[in-house]
Design a protein around this nucleic acid. Structure first.
Length: 795
DNA sequence: TTGAAATTCGTTTTT
DNA sequence: CGAATTTCAA
């Protein structure tokens, strides 16, 4: 039922309710963002901890309650599924509180029409998700009547199709030399691709660029023989998938943009009244085009939020310049459309000490200042008092570092607390509800081992894990190791092997790739060793050995006929009865989810849909498909755990995350690994600290620049500067996650007075100067370990 | 400052 | 294992 203007909530009442009902005290710019009209677009430049999600959610609710928009016509997009989930839950929580509040008032005022309207409002219908998820949703609507339903391919499946069906034939029939020399520039250290798979993967990343950057195909093709070959490969791939109505991420967006531009698609979608975009600085040209097209066709209200300093996804085509130049681009592409900009720069998250620290970080290098939005105000401190200095824990060896870091955590979260030198303060977890889960360890990678010639070498996360587990606590780091290397995953997959192919009669007849050949025997061994321990949990009546023997003989324990068809899923659920970790350990739940997701998806791409049949020839064929479609992808590390489906970090465990994953999150105590692996100024790892050449991502941007609309904007800064900018932003995000305590950890080498280890994270300037080194020459001989200017309290 | 010996390194992020 | 970097001694 359309609402008369008089029945809606007034903006004043809405704002008052935000304060009275939700208990949110909005500052002036925040209030401006919520109350800004719907006629002109709104660009919000929001620093860390400035309440951008709050503002976005309130603005969406205001559209429904004050502007009378249908909830299903309001759409909020963000960058990760994790962030989308948070948006949804906050929308729902606040939305319901506000609706209840206004309904109660309407009831008291005997305003029946308003009460009826409020009672029928379905806040849950507000659409929140990633743009990719909406594109997938809309894909079905681009279908031509009578054609088959479009299918989205998993990334590994799509890559497999490209390498096998398109790339390999062209590469082998003479294209190799041309492609190798072209692709080398985008490879690590600009080396020629090592093998065909390597070359294929590089070619895939170029393809994604070509699509996401909206590269002009004629210009690109005309720029060289290799470019022509690459464009032909992409075209072949596109046609191959098109014939089968299949799509990958990029092609799906491309299809949606095409549908919108042709004018056929928008009419099929739910009409749009408002579009709100979070994390706009990570938008790519393709996504910008989709947003602009949606706004053009719907005439909807448009608000974007972002922070140029937190742009982390250049490697995925994200273009921070689309954000910094938003107003000009919007005006140019939607003539007559107006926009306004608001800065949110008061930080409500961190202590003043922490805010000062990351402000200094963002401004200490003039070369980076030039990359930021001109005239951007510094982030202002808000939280008063209870300041703890920024802490630094640096040790001579990795062993010492992980031991002392773990002890520090135990003191703070399990013991009497830790006295902070230079202050009277004691850092100790809250007596009520405080737990190790309040701390977060951030690093550029969370891998627990690195490969070397003499086997795997431990990294910081595994050592911290070991120390904390020894003390009865633990970590939550489900991405620390590949699925194929997790002991209980090995046991589970090994048990599947023993059940399906007990004598490895089948296995030896199959052509398996090298990784699968290596891992299948390992998994079998793990399972056999496990059976030998005779695990008997309370819920299982028979022994595991007995159960597996039943599969071997295809005879049930009660002597009945073996079923004609058993879903693999059933077998897995049965087997985990003997491995209780899969039911109660949070990390194992994530591993299990990844395996189960692969099995469930198998219904779409695996010949037998992962059903195990009992009659020839289907019995061996259905078993074979388990090798090819489940075991082989896991052995090749193509099945990855899904960070967004990760359950909240358990309260008694230390969260370990990549800085990328931590975006948008906040933790009371944040520990940033700025150098647990840096002992010298070695060139091989310079790209993680202090790059010497431009990253391949940046080079690809520049390579495409002449043929894209955003090329000029991007190359306004040099390749090497953009490579440095990315590293600055990474650590800016890391440092600004902390609420109360921020600690930098690493090896002593990084902060010695005379160190040569150049590192962006420890405040080196890209001109080679080091802000933490005192310039007093008198200190040069026998200098103290601790430079005077270092703003860290070393512990 | 120079040459030789000793040490250290080995890519990462994701819809 | 090969290359880059640091350290040591003159």
């Amino acid at each position: 039922m359309p609402m008369g203007r008089g029945n809606l909530i007034s903006l004043e009442d809405f704002t008052a309710a935000v304060h009275d009902v939700l208990g949110r005290e909005l500052n002036d710019p925040q209030r401006t963002c919520v109350s800004h009209g719907t006629d002109s677009a709104l660009m919000i430049v929001a620093g860390p901890g400035s309440g951008k999600t709050t503002v976005l959610v309130l603005r969406a609710l205001r559209h429904v309650l004050v502007d009378g928009m249908q909830p299903e016509s309001v759409m909020i997009t963000t960058f990760t599924r994790k962030a989308a989930g948070e948006l949804s839950s906050r929308l729902l929580g606040w939305g319901i509180s506000l609706v209840d509040h206004f309904a109660e008032r309407a009831r008291l005022a005997a305003d029946t029409p308003k009460l009826n309207w409020l009672n029928r409002l379905d806040i849950n219908a507000i659409q929140a998700g990633t743009l990719d998820s909406f594109c997938q949703l809309w894909l079905g609507k681009t279908r031509i009547v009578g054609s088959p339903t479009p299918v989205m391919l998993e990334e590994f499946a799509a890559n497999f199709v490209f390498r096998r069906k398109v790339f390999a034939p062209a590469y082998r029939t003479g294209g190799q030399a041309t492609m190798d020399s072209y692709l080398a520039q985008y490879n690590f250290e600009r080396q020629a691709p090592r093998n065909q798979a390597d070359a294929g993967n590089l070619s895939i990343s170029v393809n994604n660029r070509l699509i996401q950057d909206l590269v002009d195909p004629d210009g690109y093709r005309g720029s060289g023989a290799a470019q022509q070959a690459q464009a032909a490969l992409l075209q072949q791939y596109r046609e191959y998938l098109q014939d089968r109505q299949m799509f990958d991420f990029s092609l799906c967006s491309e299809r949606i943009l095409g549908g919108l531009r042709s004018g056929r698609l928008y009419g099929q979608l739910t009409p749009l009244s408002a579009l709100l975009v979070d994390e706009y600085q990570d938008t790519n040209p393709m996504q910008e085009a989709i947003y602009f097209e949606l706004v053009r066709q719907s005439g909807c209200a448009f608000a974007i939020v972002g922070d140029d300093d937190q742009a982390l996804y250049r490697f995925r085509g994200a273009t921070v310049e689309l954000f910094t130049n938003f107003q000009a681009r919007f005006a140019q592409q939607l003539p007559g459309a107006e926009s306004e900009m608001v800065y949110l720069s008061t930080n409500h998250r961190s202590t003043p000490e922490i805010v000062r620290f990351f402000n200094t970080f963002a401004t200490h290098d003039p070369a980076f200042v030039a990359a930021r939005v001109a005239g951007k105000p510094p982030i202002r401190e808000y939280n008063p008092g209870r300041d703890i200095p920024i802490l630094g824990l640096f040790r001579d060896s990795l062993d010492d570092l992980s031991a002392d870091l773990s002890q520090f955590l135990l003191d703070v979260f399990q013991g009497e607390g830790r006295r902070i030198p230079g202050t009277g303060a004691v850092l100790r977890s809250q007596a009520q509800g405080g737990a190790l889960g309040d701390a977060l360890l951030l690093a550029s990678s969370v891998r627990e081992y690195k490969d070397s010639n003499d086997g795997p070498v431990e990294r910081l996360p595994i050592q911290v894990r070991q120390h904390l587990e020894a003390a009865g606590l633990g970590v939550f780091n489900p991405r620390g190791q590949d699925l194929r290397d997790i002991l209980n995953v090995q046991r589970l997959l090994g048990l599947v092997l023993l059940c399906l192919d007990p004598t490895d009669r089948l296995e030896t007849t199959l052509y398996l790739n090298r990784d699968t050949q290596r891992y299948v025997p390992l998994w079998r061994q793990a399972a056999e060793a496990f059976i030998a321990t005779n695990p008997v949990p309370a819920s299982a009546r028979s022994s595991l050995r007995h159960y597996v023997q039943g599969w071997r003989a295809r005879r049930t324990s009660s002597g009945e006929d073996w079923p004609n068809e058993i879903p693999l899923l059933d077998l897995l659920y049965k087997l985990i009865v003997w491995i209780p970790e899969f039911q109660r350990d949070p990390e194992h739940l994530v591993y299990l989810e990844a395996i189960m997701r692969c099995v469930v998806q198998g219904a779409h791409y695996s010949g037998y849909g992962f059903a195990i049949l009992n009659t020839a020839p289907h019995d061996s064929q259905s078993r074979t498909s388990v090798f090819y479609d489940l075991l082989s992808p896991i052995a090749q590390t193509e099945v990855e755990v899904d960070e967004d489906l990760m359950f909240a970090v358990p309260r008694n465990r230390l969260g370990i995350m990549t800085i990328h994953q931590s975006k948008g999150l906040e933790y009371p105590l944040v520990i940033v690994d700025v150098g647990s692996e840096f002992k010298s100024n070695h060139a091989k790892q310079a790209f993680k600290r202090f790059p010497r050449d431009s990253s391949s991502t940046v080079l690809m941007e520049s390579g495409m620049a002449p043929f894209t609309g955003v090329g000029k904007l991007r190359v306004a800064r040099t390749d090497i500067d953009r490579t440095f900018d990315d590293l600055m932003r990474l650590y800016y995000v890391a440092f600004s996650r902390a609420q109360v305590g921020l600690m930098l950890v690493g090896l002593t080498k990084n902060i010695e007075y005379a160190t040569t280890v150049q590192n962006i994270a420890t405040f080196w300037r890209r001109d080679g100067g080091w802000s933490w080194r005192n310039d007093n020459p008198a200190l040069k001989r026998g200098a103290p370990t601790r430079p005077e200017m270092m703003p860290l309290e070393l512990i």
